[in-house]
């Protein structure tokens, strides 16, 4: 039974990879419908990544679209040495970081201190350990997680998102962001220190 399930999973994975390889090849010959399949396959993950790094849904939608457009443009040079998702991930993360840095520099953006204070106050769902039971809980938790991420600079947010949400290894993060592993470790450590310093008083308050 277990063996059969394993074989079925393996077959599905092989078919998926084969399917993806064919789709990429078709895209490289100018088949737009093949690219449509790839967009549909990865849009939720790329949009989720963009939301986490940028923190604004509208800007995240634009950034995710831009990432797919850039991926399509450069697809002719894609040799298949890494998986298509890694290739897409690298493009998307870089687009999102650029957008997040630009958004932060905008003169009309809310002051960081005010935003941190406002965000840190509403974390009731975040402090709990309960799994969200319905859509309202899920949206609430997601927003509060975003509030916590927004406490970080885009560079620090990107490494935390890639490590904790996207579950990438430090080597993979270094590869995606084009950094050394030492820089990734240092950014992760600084990001966690910042979260600790900002959230510790609220965490204590919540526990008491």
């Amino acid at each position: 039974m277990l063996r059969r399930a394993f074989r079925l999973t393996l077959t599905r994975t092989v078919f998926r990879m084969r399917d993806e390889h064919d789709l990429i090849h078709q895209c490289q010959t100018g088949d737009e419908q093949a690219f449509r399949h790839l967009v549909k396959r990865y849009e939720d993950r790329i949009y989720g990544l963009a939301c986490s790094i940028i923190g604004d849904r509208e800007a995240a939608k634009d950034a995710a679209q831009e990432a797919f457009i850039r991926a399509y443009r450069a697809l002719g040079k894609f040799e298949g040495k890494s998986s298509f998702y890694t290739y897409l991930y690298r493009i998307a993360t870089n687009v999102c970081l650029t957008v997040a840095q630009r958004e932060q520099r905008r003169p009309d953006s809310v002051s960081l201190d005010g935003m941190q204070e406002a965000n840190a106050m509403a974390l009731d769902r975040f402090w709990g350990t309960d799994e969200p039971q319905n859509d309202i809980d899920r949206i609430g938790l997601r927003d509060q997680i975003q509030n916590v991420l927004n406490l970080l600079s885009p560079e620090h947010r990107a490494v935390v998102v890639l490590k904790d949400i996207e579950d990438l290894s430090q080597e993979e993060i270094a590869n995606v962001l084009g950094l050394s592993i030492g820089t990734v470790k240092s950014r992760l450590s600084r990001a966690r220190a910042r979260l600790r310093d900002l959230l510790m008083p609220l965490y204590r308050e919540w526990r008491e």
């Binding site: 939720d44 989720g48 939301c51 969200p132 938790l141 997601r142 997680i145 904790d164 949400i165 579950d167």
Partner: peptide, 8 residues
């Protein structure tokens, strides 16, 4: 909590 982030 970050690992449990509901999908968007």
């Amino acid at each position: 909590r970050l690992r449990q982030r509901p999908a968007q």
